[in-house]
């Protein structure tokens, strides 16, 4: 395990397993595996996503592998179904991932609708989720920020529901905090914002709303200094979580003095 403080008092629990970090990170778009590893460590992430792809036949097979940089003994790997546009391909990808990772059950299901928006195809997502849950997978599901759909995915048996904050890779931040609030307040499984975060304050807002965690890739990997941004995101997640638990003051239109009025001179 990483040499970091495990917050035993406030773990993120997914499918019965406790995680110290509420920041989940992707492993795409980095310069090399060294940068991937350094950023992942700076983020303090326990759960890291990866993609399943064909090997390049004919190229040097002895090249370093992602799993050398992020060994399964050290991190909880979360294989995704990125690039799948229908339920059949997504289920197939999850089965390949399970074989690749020796029976690993935890997967991130995402079924995309079109290449321009990368919005989820929620009809295919529901179909794939039902099949995967029936097949014994622990499904963390990427979805739109629709509260009714989020509830439906929970009822199917998904172990975490992961609504987008904004389109994948857009960096637009939390676009519909009231939908997210509605999803959070009705959920019995962890709600993790997946996609759309641009900078640390976006992650903090998600956590202040009461999200259980945030999953991000581009916001870290695409920063000028990915390792420093990973560190910033770690702090934002921790600050946002603490602020949520502390309970913020209500917003008011008029001022309220911080210092007592009694005893002023003159």
């Amino acid at each position: 395990m990483n040499t970091k403080t495990f917050d035993t008092a406030d773990p993120l629990v997914i499918a019965g397993k406790s995680y110290g970090s509420r920041l989940l990170t992707g492993t795409g778009k980095y310069k090399d595996f060294d940068e991937t590893r350094r950023a992942t460590q700076a983020a303090g992430a326990d759960i890291v996503t990866l993609a399943i792809r064909r090997v390049n036949i004919g190229q040097d097979a002895s090249q370093p592998n992602l799993l050398d940089a992020l060994p399964p003994e050290e991190f909880t790997l979360l294989p995704n179904t990125a690039g799948c546009y229908n339920a059949v391909d997504a289920v197939r990808t999850c089965k390949l991932a399970r074989e690749l990772l020796d029976g690993h059950k935890l997967v991130k299901l995402e079924v995309l609708g079109d290449q321009r928006t990368l919005f989820p195809d929620v009809v295919e997502t529901l179909k794939a989720a039902e099949t995967l849950v029936a097949d014994g997978f622990d499904v963390m599901v990427y979805t739109s920020d629709d509260p009714i759909l989020a509830k439906r995915l929970e009822e199917i048996g998904c172990v975490a529901v992961m609504p987008l904050a904004a389109p994948i890779g857009s960096g637009l931040g939390i676009q519909n905090r009231y939908n997210l609030l509605e999803i959070i307040e009705n959920a019995k499984v962890p709600i993790i914002v997946d996609a759309g975060v641009g900078t640390a304050s976006d992650a903090a807002i998600a956590m202040e709303l009461g999200c259980d965690g945030v999953l991000m890739n581009t916001a870290i990997a695409g920063a000028k200094d990915p390792v420093l941004m990973a560190h910033a995101m770690k702090l934002a997640i921790e600050a946002g979580r603490a602020a949520f638990k502390a309970g913020r003051i209500p917003r008011k239109r008029f001022a309220s003095a911080s210092s007592p009025i009694d005893g002023t001179i003159g």
């Binding site: 492993t27 036949i57 992602l66 790997l77 390949l96 690749l100 999953l215």
Partner: peptide
């Protein structure tokens, strides 16, 4: 036949 492995992804 398909042979797949893990690569970076989000």
């Amino acid at each position: 036949v398909e042979i797949v492995h893990a690569i970076g992804g989000g």
